[in-house]
């Protein structure tokens, strides 16, 4: 008769449900409600990740939230030293409030990285169009850094960025640096501007129709609120970019990050393992149905 081994049935090491400990080295205030958490591992090396992946960030005793990693996938700073793990988060709930208000040195839990990648290298040889709004720039930043790291392998690189107000612009100085030093065509627009604002006012999708890129050779990476992504993807296909060359990062409720809890399902997709980055060719029919 089969008898079950009673010992060591559950291995603790590398268990995807157990958070690893990271210490907060700094909380950087990016805008009035958006902060970047810089984390160093308490034991061992920092995790390696691919652009587009996310982790489950845990505030001890409060809870856990899925957050895209916003740092450089190379994992090193400009001097070649291990870079802290970066997450840019909006202070909108109990867990994010606990995370952004934590003092340096506080330990937080990290599970992951989970999910699919932007795989920006698929765009090599053609133009690259990043379309994003608000905090949607954070999950795209690792892909932008991947492209800029090998800038010469790509054609034109465009970053079309929309935010609610000029005060909500994320990574503003870094975007200007990309424009100045890395030959990135950065175009910004805001939904609402104060009196005297000199920049562009309007929706980010309006930038797509006039942007200078070759749609037949281009790859587009889109991240933002779902309505904005739907409009952006539609504008991109309208310009002639094939749906298979448009990628979106989807947001859904997630409790496990590993395809078990069921919360993130979008019909047959588990966004946490099949996504968050998915081809618009796959998403288009699903995004057309309300409340799917």
């Amino acid at each position: 008769m089969t008898t079950a081994a009673a010992d060591a049935r559950v291995r603790d090491s590398g268990d995807p449900m157990v958070p690893r400990r990271y210490a907060i080295t700094r909380v950087r205030e990016d805008t009035r409600d958006t902060f970047t958490l810089l984390l160093d591992p308490v034991n061992g090396e920092t995790l390696t990740f691919r652009a587009g992946q996310f982790t489950m960030l845990h505030a001890f005793g409060v809870g856990e939230v899925p957050i895209s990693i916003s740092g450089d996938p190379r994992g090193v700073d400009s001097d070649g030293n291990p870079a802290p793990l970066e997450h840019t988060i909006r202070n909108v709930g109990a867990v994010t409030r606990a995370l952004v208000n934590a003092a340096p040195g506080t330990e937080v839990g990290v599970r992951g990285p989970f999910g699919t990648s932007w795989n920006a290298a698929d765009a090599v040889g053609g133009d690259v169009v990043f379309v994003t709004g608000g905090i949607g720039l954070a999950p795209l930043r690792p892909a932008i850094l991947d492209v800029l790291n090998e800038r010469e392998r790509y054609g034109k690189v465009l970053l079309l960025y929309g935010s609610r107000t000029p005060g909500d612009i994320l990574y503003g100085s870094e975007m200007r640096r990309w424009d100045d030093l890395n030959d990135v065509n950065v175009q910004m627009t805001v939904d609402n501007a104060p009196y005297g604002y000199k920049g562009k006012v309007g929706f980010v999708t309006e930038l797509i129709t006039r942007a200078g890129f070759d749609p037949r050779q281009a790859f587009a990476f889109v991240c933002g609120p779902e309505g904005m992504m739907r409009a952006a993807a539609s504008a991109l296909t309208g310009r002639g970019v094939p749906a298979s060359r448009i990628r979106l990062s989807m947001e859904r409720s997630m409790k496990c990050g590993i395809g078990l809890c069921g919360h993130c399902q979008l019909r047959e997709l588990f966004i946490c393992v099949d996504g968050p980055v998915l081809s618009y060719a796959r998403l288009e029919p699903l995004m057309k149905v309300r409340e799917l």
Binding site: A4, D7, V10, F60, G61, T106, E107
Partner: peptide, 22 residues
């Protein structure tokens, strides 16, 4: 998990294991 306030919020986490009887 347990957190130690004396040591900067250091915490430890122990995975629960299941009853072994098949």
């Amino acid at each position: 998990g347990r957190r130690d306030h004396e040591r900067g919020g250091h915490f430890t986490v122990e995975r629960d294991t299941v009853d072994a009887a098949p």
